[in-house]
């Protein structure tokens, strides 16, 4: 614009003295504002994290300041009964770990098996059909899985192990269904890791006379191990944070038990049950869900960071 203006003011083509041409980048206010707005959009994610930490920390502090709660008892005693002022988180943590463990026992073999099949054996066409089905399994809402656990898996377990041993609400059913829920995570993430292994490694193994299975297990899987381990850790983090299945199928009593046939309430299940009722602000029940939430947040955060670390530390890089 400025250049045009300068040319236009030249009368009759006579060369007058011009100011020196300024080639520096001109500041554009509009562009700067837009850039700032976009930056602010990015910052919201930081604020969300800060918000989570602040909210959980603040209310947990109120919880631990309460005279009926002691920090030592919270982490060491095995009774959680807010009505009589007993706050030991171990039964909740124990139930969470048990359901997650059962879930991993279901999901790791099935998910990894499916991943190896899809990456190493399946034809292009079979993969095109099977992968979307796995993703479909991942798209089903979790409350539907909760329904499935309570109305399908539990009755089967009860008829297999006997009505007396297996109670209506039990950890095993919840654990199995959470396992089903995380199969797609294990399978798709592991499959990505396996597919990323260069074909040259496979061809070298075939050249040495290895069978397809030997190649898969002795060459491809070890090469992709960091990715597979990371997939397992991410799946574990999902299992720990899963709420609806355990809220519906695992029962509503915080028992400290290692028996998978007995009801036991997980951390997430407890938060869902307590906050489902009428919860008044500032009560010990209200602040307790923040304390449990804080523990849950720390566990999942550690698992997530661990998975990232595993990938970065142990990844085999191929040219």
């Amino acid at each position: 614009m400025a250049d045009q203006a300068r040319v236009a003011t030249d009368p009759g083509g006579t060369v007058t003295t011009r100011p020196p041409l300024d080639l520096r980048r001109r500041p554009r206010i509009g562009e700067a504002i837009i850039q700032f707005i976009l930056f602010a959009c990015g910052l919201t994610s930081i604020f969300v994290t800060l918000g989570i930490v602040y909210v959980l920390g603040k209310e947990s502090l109120l919880f631990f300041r309460d005279p009926t709660v002691s920090l030592v008892d919270f982490f060491t005693t095995t009774i959680w009964q807010p009505s009589i002022g007993k706050f030991g988180i171990l039964p909740l943590v124990n139930a969470t770990l048990m359901t997650s463990l059962i879930a991993m026992l279901v999901a790791i073999p099935l998910g990894l098996g499916a991943a190896i099949y899809l990456a190493e054996y399946a034809s292009e066409r079979a993969r095109g059909i099977l992968k979307p089905i796995l993703e479909l399994l991942a798209g089903v809402p979790t409350v539907v899985y909760g329904y499935f656990a309570l109305t399908f898996v539990t009755p089967i377990l009860r008829s297999v192990f006997g009505q007396d041993t297996v109670e209506i609400y039990n950890d095993l059913s919840a654990g199995i269904v959470v396992g089903i829920l995380i199969i797609p995570i294990v399978a798709t993430l592991s499959e990505d890791a396996l597919s990323a292994v260069p074909t040259a490694l496979r061809q070298a193994a075939f050249g040495l006379g290895a069978t397809k299975f030997e190649t898969a297990v002795h060459v491809v899987v070890p090469s992709a191990l960091s990715g597979i381990v990371a997939a397992g850790i991410i799946a574990m983090s999902r299992a720990v944070g899963e709420t609806m299945v355990v809220a519906l199928a695992a029962g509503a009593s915080p028992n400290f038990t290692f028996n998978p046939f007995k009801p036991a309430e997980t951390m997430t299940g407890h938060i869902a049950r307590i906050s489902g009722g009428d919860l008044s602000y500032g009560t010990i029940d209200y602040t307790s869900i923040f304390a449990i939430g804080l523990i849950l947040f720390v566990i999942t955060m550690v698992l997530n960071i661990l998975s990232r670390w595993v990938v970065q530390r142990f990844r085999e890089v191929y040219e």
Binding site: S45, G51, V55, L56, S237, G241, E242, F290, F297, N304
Partner: peptide, 21 residues
């Protein structure tokens, strides 16, 4: 990095955040 970590936070934690905020 933070966005990657946020995607792994359990949904119920967002519920707690929503309840408080």
């Amino acid at each position: 990095i933070n966005i990657y970590n946020l995607s792994g936070v359990p949904s119920i934690i967002y519920g707690i955040l929503g309840l408080a905020i």
